[in-house]
Structure formats: structure tokens, C-alpha cells
Write a protein that binds this DNA or RNA. Structure first.
Ligand SMILES: [Zn+2]
Ligand SMILES: [Zn+2]
Ligand SMILES: [Zn+2]
Ligand SMILES: [Zn+2]
Lengths: 160, 160
DNA sequence: TCAGTGGTGTTATGAGATAACATCACATGC
DNA sequence: GCATGTGATGTTATCTCATAACACCACTGA
């Protein structure tokens, strides 16, 4: 984050009620699909939702235990892999961080706007990759998943 | 790479003459710009050009010495940072690898098509990010650089 | 009851990247 | 020539990110 600006305030995390609701929805949906929404998976998703911005894996590991005890790395990485597979979270490769999915859509390749100053991110919807799809078709590639991450400044940091 | 297919042949590395020419061009251009194209930087660029596909940083480190001696990590990472800053190489975040720029354009945000089977990559030109630019403007973000990486299968691996 | 499957706990290690500091090369101005 | 500033390198150590491997457990269906 910020080399140049020092105000780390963006829209901020969702309320506890928002987190609860999202967790409940996710649990219900996955259970209905026959998936097992276990305690570790719920906990990691809860941490991601509560953060409201990208979180480093080792921060999740540190915050994992409600009593302050950290988790073992594989516990969190396994949960992240599951959540990502199920479309509930995304890995942001350019900053090696993870974020809860903010889109209602189930199966999607997300694109992100990332503020290098305050860390705010915005998940934007699909059509951003239409040009990429065209290029892939032209080159004869069959695309499975895409990583689209734009770095810059968010409106708040631009205004400051 | 490949879980599913086992033919690691794509267009393959450029000839030694191609590499030499590209190195000479890069050297001339940067020298003209007042930059110092040092031995380490040339060597790393040579390794990237010769590979003709993304290379892991620690592979560059291992191959660095012409006598088989590895480099120290900072040597290679500094060279990579310089080459990337000058538009001669790109980092591919989704696979933590580096590749020589295959575009003539000087200052550009590249997009990549990456074959998960054989490792081939294709650098495709700018307009793929037009949708992203539109989304960024709509959200009020000022974009500085983008990471666009599409994973899938190349034509050769699809045919097999 | 007994496999088979998928999830977890735990230890250890592999892979990717950088901090910090001393030293060196080179250009500029005296 | 010689001081001085700047950018590049050498070197050591360390930090961050991620996974391998294996034992154990819970649930399911024969
Ligand atoms: Zn999403
Ligand atoms: Zn911001
Ligand atoms: Zn390029
Ligand atoms: Zn291929």
C-alpha cells in the first residue's frame, strides 16, 4: 500500500449482521449442493467477509482462532482453495491476497480494481474480459480462467 | 504444468541469432536513453529471451552463471525489476514467473494467454483491457497498471 | 462391519522475494 | 587529479507465501 498517501479509510467493513447473513447464505447454498461447509471453511469466509478488503493468507492464519491462537497454514490454505473453487472467494495474484466474492453470480471470472494507496478493492463484473476472449479466440486458445487486476488509485485517495 | 496432456512442444525458443539481435537492440535503446545496461541485466534478459517462455526467478538464478554457478537472489530480482520497469520483461503474477516482452511497443500493459498444459504463452496487445478501462472510469479509479492473464489450452495442446 | 472417500491435524520443508549494509563504478564539478 | 554524489553490485540473512506427506477421523454405502 501507500507510499504516497496516508489515509486508509474507504467504505470499510460490512456490519456484523451483513457478515452473518452472507455466511448463512453461503452455508445454505453449499449444503444444498451437497458440499460440506465445515467450521474451518466458515471461519475463513467469516474473516474475509469481515475484512471487506483483500487479506493476506498469514493474516487469516493469525486471526483464525477466536481465542487468539493462530491456525496451521494448511488449515487456512485448504479452506481458501475450497472457497475459491466454490466461487465464494478470490485470490488476487498480483498482491498475493484473498478476498470474499462480492458478486451474486455463482461461476464467474472476476476482475478487480485495486487501490495501491489504501488497499480498497472493487470487484467488477464480467464484460471487462470481452477483448481478452476475442484475442484468445483469434490465437486459438481455449480459456479456462482469467486473472484481471487493475492497480491505481481509488476515488477517495484521488480526492485527498 | 500439464496434468492432462504430456506434449511439451510449442513454437520453441528463438534462435541464438534472434536472441543476439534482441539483446543488441535492447542495449542500444537503453544506452541511448541514458540507462546502464549492465552485465547482470543483459544476462537475465538473455536467459529470458533464450527460454522463449515464462521462467521462474529461481531458474534464472540457477542458470545465471555461464560456468554453472548460480547467482545470489537479489542479483536476479534487481535485474528483473529493472527490465520490467523498462518494458523489456513482464512478471506473470498468476504463475510467479517472468517472460521477455515480445512486443515492440515501449510502454504497455500486456495481456497474456497461458497454456496450463505445455507452458506456452502468448503476449497479446493492448485493446484487451478496454472493458477494464471503462469499468475503472465508471468506478472513479485511476488505473496505473494492469495484470491480465488468461489460462487455458494452446492450439497445439487442444489438437493433441 | 468394513471398505472408500473426503476433511482435518501436524510436522516439516519448499519456493518466492526482500531488508540491510558494505563496497564498487562512474560521472560531474572543482 | 581528486572530492563527491548517485546508482549498481555483492553478500548475508531473513521474511513471506505455499505445499508435501502422513496419520487420524467422520461419514457413506456395500
Ligand atoms: Zn466474485
Ligand atoms: Zn485508496
Ligand atoms: Zn510486453
Ligand atoms: Zn499447450
Amino acid at each position: 500500500m501507500g507510499e504516497a498517501c496516508h489515509h486508509h479509510h474507504h467504505d470499510g467493513p460490512p456490519t456484523a449482521a451483513d457478515v452473518e447473513r452472507a455466511l448463512g447464505d453461503a452455508d445454505a447454498r453449499l449444503t444444498a449442493e451437497g458440499e460440506r461447509m465445515t467450521a474451518a471453511r466458515l471461519r475463513v469466509l467469516e474473516l474475509l467477509l469481515a475484512a471487506g478488503e483483500p487479506v493476506k493468507a498469514y493474516d487469516l492464519i493469525a486471526r483464525f482462532g477466536t481465542d487468539g491462537q493462530p491456525a496451521k497454514p494448511p488449515t487456512v490454505y485448504r479452506a481458501l482453495e475450497f472457497l475459491e473453487r466454490k466461487g465464494l472467494a478470490h485470490r488476487i495474484a498480483s498482491i498475493s491476497a484473498y478476498v470474499a466474492c462480492s458478486s451474486g453470480t455463482i461461476d464467474h471470472s472476476a476482475a478487480f480494481l485495486i487501490c495501491d494507496c489504501c488497499g480498497a478493492t472493487e470487484e467488477v463484473a464480467a464484460p471487462v474480459a470481452e477483448g481478452l476472449d476475442r484475442a484468445a479466440r483469434a490465437a486459438g486458445y481455449a480459456i479456462v480462467r482469467t486473472t484481471v487486476e487493475a492497480h491505481g488509485r481509488c476515488p477517495a485517495c484521488l480526492a485527498a
